[in-house]
């Protein structure tokens, strides 16, 4: 078994999962809303990237800047038009609403881009040698940008005034209100930020994976597995779990074949739910 090769591949994949899952987890932490449309924002990001780079012949760097902004705008619209109205209601309502949004986004995407797979051949092509292994340039760039963004948001949450406001709304909304923090403003910004992270993840997976409007469900499940294993609402937990699950997915795909490998994250998620529902670093779900 080529341990080193698989390990590197797993960590590179895990970095991308970290970016996807942290956005989802951030939104859950602040709003207690599970965004089922998160995966579909990733899909929209990937497909828009393909359109920008292959359709309009613009450089990949343009997509890295433009697509997260677009995703943030979509996310903000979702939050302002729909989720804000029901975020404080029973959880079943917000789950159904984001599920409905997911359906709408998927099918509108199919109407726009068609149902087929689209790739970005030649973008960030080539490879280089690292630790005696051939590593695809696109995967390495994806990993680095994803980790930079994830850690950047982490720094923002820890060290800036607004970041502290986000964390306080996440941990004690009542106390945050008493201290003059506008919960609405924090929620809007958080949702837009989470959506932008999904959009960026979409940009970064476009050169490596084939994109289609349905990829949201596939990656969405992985995001869910990551935040459950890491602990819902825990940002460092999600980063840790993402790298761990990326490695596990690559190894199990190699050992047990593609079929089991594709479902392994889900099975791990079920096990964690049975054994330790709060996850590795989780705070538990507030009732």
């Amino acid at each position: 078994m080529p341990v080193l090769e698989l390990l590197i591949a797993g960590i590179l994949l895990g970095g991308l999962y970290a970016l996807m899952a942290c956005g989802l987890n951030l939104v859950f932490g602040v709003m207690r809303v599970i965004n089922f449309a998160h995966g579909d924002l990733i899909a929209v990001g990937a497909l828009t990237t393909v359109s920008i780079v292959a359709g309009y012949n613009l450089p990949f760097a343009v997509a890295i800047v433009v697509v997260p902004l677009l995703a943030a705008a979509i996310g903000l619209a979702m939050q302002v038009l729909v989720i804000r109205r029901i975020a404080d209601g029973p959880m079943i309502m917000s789950l159904l609403a984001t599920f409905a949004l997911s359906t709408i986004i998927v099918n509108v995407s199919i109407l726009i881009w068609g149902g087929g797979y689209r790739g970005l051949p030649g973008v960030l092509g080539g490879s280089f040698r690292f630790l005696g292994q051939d590593i695809a340039l696109s995967r390495m760039v994806s990993f680095l940008v994803a980790m930079a963004a994830t850690l950047g948001v982490w720094w923002f949450l820890q060290n800036t005034r607004f970041g502290r406001a986000i964390r306080s709304v996440s941990q004690a909304p009542e106390l945050a209100t008493i201290n003059g923090i506008s919960i609405d403003a924090v929620r809007n910004v958080t949702f837009a930020l989470g959506a932008a992270m999904a959009g960026l993840a979409g940009v970064l997976l476009a050169p490596t994976f084939a994109s289609d409007p349905q990829l949201g469900a596939r990656f969405g499940i992985k995001c869910f597995a990551v935040i459950i294993v890491g602990g819902m609402g825990s940002y460092p937990g999600a980063m840790l779990a993402a790298l761990l699950l990326g490695v596990i997915e690559v190894f199990s795909g190699y050992v047990m074949g593609q079929v089991i490998g594709s479902a392994i994250l889900f099975l791990i998620m079920l096990t964690v739910l049975l054994v330790r529902p709060r996850g590795l670093l989780g705070l538990g779900v507030r009732a």
């Binding site: 599970i34 089922f36 959880m91 869910f224 739910l273 009732a287």
Partner: peptide, 21 residues
């Protein structure tokens, strides 16, 4: 047994994934 023992959104996530798996 796995997903309904804990409260909250686990059940929704779990069953969403189950269908695709």
């Amino acid at each position: 047994g796995a997903m309904l023992r804990v409260k909250g959104p686990f059940f929704a996530i779990g069953m969403f994934g189950m269908a695709r798996v």
